[in-house]
Design a protein around this nucleic acid. Sequence first.
DNA 1: GATTTCTCTGGTCAGGTGTCAAGTTTTCTG
DNA 2: CAGAAAACTTGACACCTGACCAGAGAAATC
Lengths: 208, 208
Amino acid sequence: MARANPVDKHDARRRALADSALRTLGELGYARASLREIANNSPFSHGVVHYYFADKLDLIVYCVRQYKAVCVTRYDGAVADATTADGLVAAFADRLCETIVDDAPMHRLWYDLRAQSMFEESLREAVEQIDRTLEDMVGRVVARYAELAGTEPSLPAHTAYGMLDGVFQQALLGHLSGEPAALDTLRAEVHQIMPLLVRAGRPGLVRV
Amino acid sequence: MARANPVDKHDARRRALADSALRTLGELGYARASLREIANNSPFSHGVVHYYFADKLDLIVYCVRQYKAVCVTRYDGAVADATTADGLVAAFADRLCETIVDDAPMHRLWYDLRAQSMFEESLREAVEQIDRTLEDMVGRVVARYAELAGTEPSLPAHTAYGMLDGVFQQALLGHLSGEPAALDTLRAEVHQIMPLLVRAGRPGLVRV
DNA sequence: GATTTCTCTGGTCAGGTGTCAAGTTTTCTG
DNA sequence: CAGAAAACTTGACACCTGACCAGAGAAATC
């Protein structure tokens, strides 16, 4: 049995620690989650956090990066499996709703972090990188949607991402507030918005 | 000269304090801005904050409410003055860019507060109320735009607000990051998005 | 002018913060 | 297996936080 590379082990520990921290961070948010609280809700002592991470920011950024890395792959399946434009939209909307239900704490943490980055310059680079990853993900979904609809995207990925992120954020807030219709509203909105992101390609709609 | 009503005076003091606090809050954000720091950057002592506000949350909510109250009226002029649909879009986009340049600290504070409300239930009511006010504002702009274009809105105000807020947020973040193109991008995006928010009313575009 | 009410000050308090240095245990290596 | 290195624990530190309060001063009222 090959012994684990020390570097890999170090990294594995960081990942495990970050995984634990994510739960607490998602529960309390960036400001309220102290390193002690994070350590308490984990099998580690509070000193070990500082052993693996330079400071709180370092930890947080690592955590959110780790989460969003898996998050963006969530929609690749839907993109690959879809055989019709409408089917893709439905699958995409479903995944969005699912992730609100399943990962609400993670998403609010992300929005918290992004807001903090407007104040704290040292967060900007990580936030921008994650934002770009999400934008690419939206770009892929829209591109495939356009392909299936026999047309092409009509807006830059940046714009499409901004629009969808906006309604997603509203839905998340609504869901957390206990609004029962929040998810259905989001689903309907996605169905309405997606066709706006591509050139009108339906044979039934022509310019004269 | 009529003496000021005691209640009015009390309220005037709260407003002045909130006004002072807004500067510090916009600079540091909700978590970092301590009541002492807020008081230091003001003509008041830190004790007086507790005399006029129950606690920190009370102060913050009052502050953001106060700012957003004037904020939403910013676009009413553009709506009233516009004589053409394109003119309205241009004026609206210009105002959005202006407010990013002039009031970036206030807007980031608002997004900070909204993110905090996802964790702190006691903030939800105020945030939802402000969100609704902003939604109404967007609704008015879109309604007038549709009117000038001889058509009608095609999406609920909630959706239109979500979409525009999303790209606005991206532009704010870009602007704060020193991206020079952020404002131009936003302007272009608004010009692209607005026509999507109303039914295609141009005689040249018909369903067959 | 006396008295009550309002306004404000500045200090105190208990609790929490990130950070770090000094130990202790575990793991690896020669 | 001895010794070195890595991994981890613990407790302490200096500092800051929001909340609270006793009392000084100003204003209003009688």
